[in-house]
Amino acid sequence: MSAAEQEPQPLAGPDGPAPAGAAGPTAESRSRGLLVQGALALALWAAHPVIIVAVPDTALRTADHRPLLIVVGVWIALLAMWFARALARPASSAALALAHRLPWIALGGAWMILWQMTTAKLDWLSPPYFASPEVLIEALRGDADLLASSLGASSLLFLTGYALGSVMGFATGLLMGWSRRADYWLHPLLQSIGPVPAASLLPLALLVAPSTFASAVLIIAFGAWFPMATMTRAGVRAVPRSYIDAARTLGASEGFLVGRVAVPAALPDMLTGLFTGLGTSLAALMTAELVGVDKGLAWYINWVKGWADYPRMYVGLVVLVVFCRALMILLFKLRSSLLAWQHDLVRW
């Protein structure tokens, strides 16, 4: 083994690999840092239930503390087990994952204390515009069935429109990227109608579609179609000519060139189109549910806001945030699966 191979490699930090020649943290320093940060996070979260029980409520609107205490207690127990496992094996994947998340976990504990003190305990943020964690949990429990049905309606509507728009955008972009004649006729149309906000087309969609559901699907699909078509076209046109010539020299057919050369080479751009289309489609979903659809998360949020029931409105917003976050995680999982060859080459 050469001397270069025997030298320890620099450890990757939160901002990327350490510069050459920089000494990486030792196992002892990593364990010490994990101990200090983990103890701080546990202390902050443990202080929260103490404040709930020990400090009296002064807000006009309060709720039963027991559900919140159960939730926080379960989380503290899970965090303590995770922390103990990480201390026992500082080099394990569980320890590395915990060390990466500890600043956010500590911030979450501090935020819960601040939230509890400024609402239920000191009444600095007074009802009806602000509510304590207990009140939000009570609102969630009371509207669980309606929230579940609203989430299901939004999921069905969004996934239908997003899938339709992504498929149509892929087909349009592939056609424009591969055929110069198709690009001559379609690209000016893409440049003209593509940037139009999807929400502005809702009146037209309501006019031509047979139902409000179909009209909502159309504008959601339009939101996903434009970025997917644009990025697919750019990716296909950026395929190196040498790839095409080499495949043709070996006797590849036109279908093989498209399916086995152009599409795989353009896949990173297509996934960028999917990520961009996700945001525009979600914006179209919110508009459709606020204007033309009588159920869904945006409809629920607008409905309870009309009754000035702000705790239920906040609960709806939290469910919406979780829904959007789940969609983003699924796309990242898809990206990691399809572009496994880019591992350690491209950072997202």
Results as ranks from 00 to 15, higher is better:
residue 1 M to I: 06
residue 6 Q to K: 12
residue 7 E to C: 04
residue 11 L to N: 06
residue 13 G to E: 12
residue 20 A to Q: 14
residue 25 P to F: 03
residue 26 T to I: 06
residue 27 A to C: 03
residue 28 E to T: 11
residue 28 E to P: 05
residue 30 R to W: 08
residue 32 R to P: 04
residue 34 L to C: 11
residue 34 L to H: 08
residue 35 L to R: 10
residue 42 L to N: 07
residue 45 W to G: 04
residue 49 P to E: 10
residue 51 I to H: 11
residue 54 A to N: 02
residue 57 D to Q: 08
residue 58 T to V: 06
residue 71 V to E: 14
residue 77 A to K: 07
residue 78 L to A: 15
residue 79 L to Y: 02
residue 79 L to T: 10
residue 83 F to N: 01
residue 89 R to E: 15
residue 92 S to L: 09
residue 98 L to P: 00
residue 99 A to T: 09
residue 100 H to E: 08
residue 100 H to N: 08
residue 104 W to F: 15
residue 108 G to R: 08
residue 112 M to G: 02
residue 115 W to R: 06
residue 116 Q to F: 07
residue 119 T to W: 13
residue 121 K to F: 03
residue 123 D to I: 02
residue 124 W to E: 09
residue 135 V to L: 13
residue 137 I to L: 15
residue 140 L to I: 03
residue 142 G to M: 10
residue 143 D to S: 09
residue 144 A to W: 13
residue 145 D to W: 08
residue 145 D to C: 04
residue 147 L to Q: 02
residue 149 S to K: 12
residue 149 S to C: 06
residue 152 G to H: 12
residue 153 A to E: 02
residue 156 L to G: 03
residue 163 A to E: 06
residue 164 L to S: 11
residue 174 L to R: 01
residue 175 L to F: 05
residue 176 M to D: 01
residue 181 R to P: 03
residue 181 R to V: 14
residue 183 D to L: 05
residue 187 H to D: 15
residue 187 H to E: 07
residue 190 L to E: 11
residue 192 S to H: 06
residue 192 S to R: 06
residue 205 A to R: 01
residue 208 V to F: 14
residue 208 V to P: 08
residue 210 P to G: 07
residue 211 S to K: 05
residue 211 S to Y: 11
residue 211 S to V: 04
residue 213 F to L: 10
residue 226 F to I: 08
residue 228 M to F: 01
residue 228 M to N: 01
residue 229 A to T: 09
residue 229 A to N: 05
residue 232 T to K: 01
residue 232 T to L: 00
residue 237 R to S: 07
residue 249 T to Q: 00
residue 251 G to K: 09
residue 252 A to Q: 10
residue 253 S to T: 14
residue 253 S to Y: 08
residue 253 S to K: 13
residue 254 E to I: 06
residue 258 V to T: 08
residue 260 R to P: 03
residue 268 P to H: 01
residue 272 T to V: 14
residue 277 G to Q: 03
residue 279 G to W: 02
residue 279 G to T: 13
residue 280 T to N: 04
residue 283 A to S: 12
residue 285 L to R: 02
residue 285 L to A: 00
residue 287 T to S: 12
residue 288 A to E: 11
residue 289 E to M: 09
residue 291 V to N: 02
residue 294 D to L: 06
residue 295 K to R: 12
residue 296 G to P: 01
residue 297 L to R: 03
residue 299 W to K: 00
residue 300 Y to H: 12
residue 301 I to A: 02
residue 303 W to Y: 15
residue 307 W to M: 15
residue 314 Y to A: 10
residue 316 G to D: 02
residue 317 L to T: 06
residue 319 V to A: 03
residue 320 L to E: 07
residue 321 V to Y: 09
residue 323 F to E: 09
residue 325 R to W: 13
residue 325 R to I: 10
residue 328 M to W: 11
residue 330 L to F: 03
residue 333 K to Y: 13
residue 334 L to C: 13
residue 334 L to M: 10
residue 334 L to G: 15
residue 335 R to D: 13
residue 335 R to M: 13
residue 340 A to K: 11
residue 340 A to C: 05
residue 341 W to L: 07
residue 343 H to Q: 11
residue 343 H to K: 15
residue 343 H to W: 10
residue 345 L to H: 10
residue 346 V to R: 09
